[in-house]
Amino acid sequence: MTNAKPDPEVLAAQEQFQREGLAAGDVLTQPVEEARAATRRFQAWLNQGGPQVASVTEHVLGTTPPLQLRIYRPAAEGPLPTYLHIHGGGFALGSLDALDRWKREIAAEAGMIVVGLDYALAPEHPYPAAIDQVLAALRWLRDGATEFGVDGRRLAVGGDSAGGNLALGALLRLRDAGEAGPRLGAIIYGMLSAAHDTPSHRELGDGRFGLSTAKLDWFWTRYLPDAALRQDPAAAPLHAELAGLPEMLLQAAALDPLLDDTLNLDRRLTAAGVPHAMTVYPGVPHGFIGQTAVLEKARAARAEVVAALRRALG
């Protein structure tokens, strides 16, 4: 990591974002509502273009607070395999519109239903509100979403950053409850541990590539007001026993203080005998997958997700 440098495409994209006056919200310098608004503006720009899908439907589950889902259906007949994706944002930022273009691309290319969700955010709703909502969404997709064309026997779940934490946590809870769960988990630069003394934090945590150790500490503190929960496998799933999980796909960004979370998860899945694949994408920072309009490596990562979904779900 000592020679970590952004790809030329990343540098060009960052210059373009600066010209457009766009940046993800910064919780260290902005009130959380301002940071959320800035993040929404940035994501709206990234979401421009991309494919159309046959239908986009919204549905609300009666959780506390209520959970809004967005269901992207491709032009395909019959009950379809379905992928639930959980957005990132440190448990505090992001919305139902996060990765909208990416989710349309996945639906169109995989020929599957893709579902996004607007889970409850911290600090207003700390742990376990979000993970409880993710579990409610997975159980509904498995057992009660046939009217939307969902084949509840062929599910996958994934998430990026904090969403990767929630996806892994949900898989663990379903396993522990002895319930039928998804056939595939996709963990994309997951925010899996509150330990910030790793090599990737020491080398990449200063914020020069966007995400910083200080921001991650802010996120963890708001998500887990009880500091003791930082060691709890239910909240920080890198500490959990991993045997018995389904097939996993791991993706990481080389210029990311969270890189070691993925590398450590890879090692622990191997030790637990869980089938999985991992790709570290060089030259790109945390958050890169949403930039398919401008980054070839974002498109390559998307293609890898599509291929894994097809293999796992048919």
Rank of each mutant, 00 (worst) to 15 (best):
P6E: 13
D7V: 11
D7N: 15
V10Q: 12
F17L: 15
A24F: 15
A24V: 09
T29E: 10
P31A: 13
F42N: 06
G49S: 13
P51Y: 14
P51I: 07
P51R: 08
A54D: 12
A54E: 14
L69N: 02
A76Y: 03
T82D: 00
Y83K: 04
G89I: 04
A98T: 14
R104Y: 14
A120L: 12
P128F: 05
I131N: 00
L135K: 03
L138R: 02
A156W: 01
A162H: 04
L166V: 04
G178K: 12
P182N: 05
G185Y: 01
I188N: 03
I188Y: 06
S193P: 05
A194K: 00
H196S: 10
D197F: 12
P199W: 10
G207K: 04
F209P: 02
K215S: 14
W218P: 03
T221P: 07
L224T: 01
L224I: 08
L229F: 07
R230K: 12
Q231M: 10
D232F: 02
A235I: 02
G244Q: 11
E247I: 05
M248D: 06
L250A: 07
L269H: 12
A271T: 13
A271C: 11
A277I: 09
T279D: 15
Y281W: 15
E296Q: 15
K297I: 07
A303M: 06
V305K: 01
R310M: 11
G314K: 07
